[in-house]
């Protein structure tokens, strides 16, 4: 499904080194965009891109999203090498499963630093470049867990709920500059991040049973929505929290 909906667009993707982010990178490329990736680990992406001629135009910057000066440097380098930015996808995120009694406060901070503060910091650093275009689009990958909680994930749910509201607030503030901001709220998607807290098949069955469609999502099903929101096809959509979850949150 290559419709060249992002021809000549310059998109920054955080967390593009794996999972949903990596799929967003490859869909952006196949829709005609040039892409910069900010991630802690880039080896998996590099290996994948080697098979692809698009590697020549893809900017890879090793960045820990939770470290302020790295974000500043990374976004600047991305914008300089792409010759500007007119789209941002914040896909960098981490999970934390813990009973609340035992929750470690460093872990809590880390989750908030990456999932919420890091994403919004990227938006702020990208903003001067986004403002230079006729229109721009920011897509933040939140989670269905930011709309309806799931068990033993207080920090994760709070960070994603925060990201959703931060997206809406930014949408309000930036609408007059023709910068749209939306949050995508995936359900359980089959990625390494998801598998990290799965012990066996019965865990997966239990997760699936929460969803009306009774299955896990594929990364491509999330990335398709991200591409739509980045593109001009979504020119009237801003401030939305769009749940892509096979039917759990019914938002």
């Amino acid at each position: 499904m290559n419709k060249n909906r992002l021809t000549e667009r310059k998109i920054l993707v955080t967390g593009g080194g794996a999972g949903i982010g990596q799929e967003c990178v490859s869909k952006c490329l196949s829709e005609g965009a040039t892409v910069a990736v900010l991630d802690r680990k880039l080896d998996k992406l590099e290996k994948n891109l080697e098979k692809d001629v698009s590697i020549n135009s893809t900017v890879l910057v090793e960045v820990d999203i939770s470290v302020g000066e790295q974000v500043c440097r990374g976004v600047k380098q991305a914008a300089q090498e792409l010759g500007g930015l007119d789209g941002v996808v914040n896909s960098a995120g981490i999970d934390l499963v813990s009973e609340f009694d035992d929750m470690n406060w460093d872990d809590w901070s880390k989750v908030l630093d990456v999932n919420l503060t890091g994403a919004i910091h990227v938006c702020q650093q990208a903003l001067p470049y986004l403002r230079l275009n006729r229109s721009s689009s920011i897509v933040n990958i939140a989670s269905g867990a930011g709309l309806v909680p799931i068990q033993n994930r207080v920090a994760y749910c709070a960070s994603k709920a925060g990201l959703i509201m931060a997206s809406k607030s930014l949408a309000m503030d930036l609408a007059s500059s023709d910068i749209r901001v939306n949050a995508v709220c995936p359900g359980a998607v089959d990625t390494d991040l998801f598998r990290q807290n799965i012990r066996d098949e019965s865990d997966i069955e239990q997760v699936k049973s929460r969803y009306a469609m009774n299955r896990l999502g594929e990364v491509s099903e999330i990335a398709d929505v991200v591409i739509f929101l980045l593109s001009d096809e979504a020119s009237l959509i801003t401030g939305s929290a769009l749940a892509v979850d096979g039917g759990r949150v019914f938002h």
């Binding site: 469609m213 096809e233 939305s240 749940a243 096979g246 039917g247």
Partner: peptide, 25 residues
């Protein structure tokens, strides 16, 4: 069109606002 197509295969049960931000759902 988007919701009718293959790209929206995992979106269901949702109310999608399209309103220039008038009400942020």
């Amino acid at each position: 069109s988007f919701l009718s197509g293959d790209g929206a295969s995992y979106i269901t049960g949702q109310a999608l606002a399209i309103n220039g931000g008038r009400y942020m759902l």
